[in-house]
Simulated assay, not measured.
Amino acid sequence: MDKIYHILKSAHSGWRYLVLIMLVLAIVQALAGWLGKKPYTEGNRKFNVFTLIFVHVQILFGLGLYFLSPLVQAGIRYWKMEHIGMMIFAAILVTVGNARSKRSEDAASKHRTIALYFGLALIVIVASIIQMVQLDPTRTFWGVS
């Protein structure tokens, strides 16, 4: 079990960079489309779906860690409550944003919905990572822990 825990921990730590990059790119693309009055293309839709998938994979890594981590089993509140709660909330924001953008009629509304929901999710994720760094000085925002 210890080996699986370390593999999941490394995957979860490394995958966060891909999630952050995908979210930032999706937000920039949505803002450019919204403010530039650009059409919502199939490429936009696919990129948003890939971003959603990356976030969901990260949640799966995190849930695996939740059940294997000695930090959670030791009862450390941040890991048992705040971190997982904030991350699941961020994943819900991404999921709802993607679903709502599909239902929107015009391109501006689709872009605005993605920018809003993905942007809020990014804020929640970054806040959770900052909180983690403050609670555990052995971890860094950009360092693989």
Rank of each mutant, 00 (worst) to 15 (best):
R77T: 13
L23H: 14
L71V: 00
W79P: 00
I88D: 12
E82A: 09
K46F: 08
R45C: 01
A99I: 08
Y78G: 02
L71I: 01
F67W: 14
G64W: 03
L35D: 00
V49N: 02
P39L: 14
H83K: 11
L93K: 12
G33R: 01
F89L: 14
V57F: 04
T95N: 01
Y40H: 08
I53D: 10
M81G: 00
H56G: 04
M87Q: 13
I59V: 15
E82L: 05
F50I: 12
Q73S: 15
Q29Y: 01
V57G: 03
G33Y: 01
T95K: 00
L68G: 04
Q29T: 00
A32S: 11
G33Q: 02
L60F: 15
I59T: 14
L31I: 13
V28Q: 07
I53V: 15
I88W: 11
F89D: 05
A91E: 06
E42Q: 13
G64Y: 02
V55F: 03
N44G: 01
W79T: 02
R77D: 15
V57R: 02
V24S: 11
Y40C: 02
H56P: 07
Q29K: 08
T95V: 07
L52T: 11
M87V: 04
I53Q: 06
K37L: 10
V24E: 04
R77A: 13
G62V: 02
Q73N: 15
G62D: 11
L31H: 09
L71W: 08
L35N: 03
S69R: 10
Q58T: 06
I88C: 12
Y78H: 12
G36H: 05
R77Q: 13
A74T: 00
V72Q: 12
G36D: 08
K37G: 07
V94A: 07
G36E: 07
L31S: 06
A99D: 04
G85P: 01
G64E: 04
V28F: 12
W34E: 01
W34I: 02
Y78D: 06
L63V: 15
G62H: 07
T51Q: 08
L93F: 14
A90N: 10
T51V: 05
V28T: 05
V28H: 09
V28K: 06
Q73M: 13
L93P: 10
P70H: 10
F89S: 10
A91W: 10
L31C: 14
V96S: 03
N48L: 05
A32Q: 12
G36Y: 03
G33S: 02
G97I: 02
R77K: 09
L63K: 10
M86H: 03
L71M: 11
V57D: 03
F50K: 03
I88M: 15
M81H: 11
P70G: 12
F50R: 09
L35I: 13
R77N: 12
K37P: 00
P70Q: 05
M87E: 11
A74D: 14
A32R: 13
V72P: 06
V24K: 00
I92R: 00
K80N: 14
F47S: 12
F47N: 09
V55T: 13
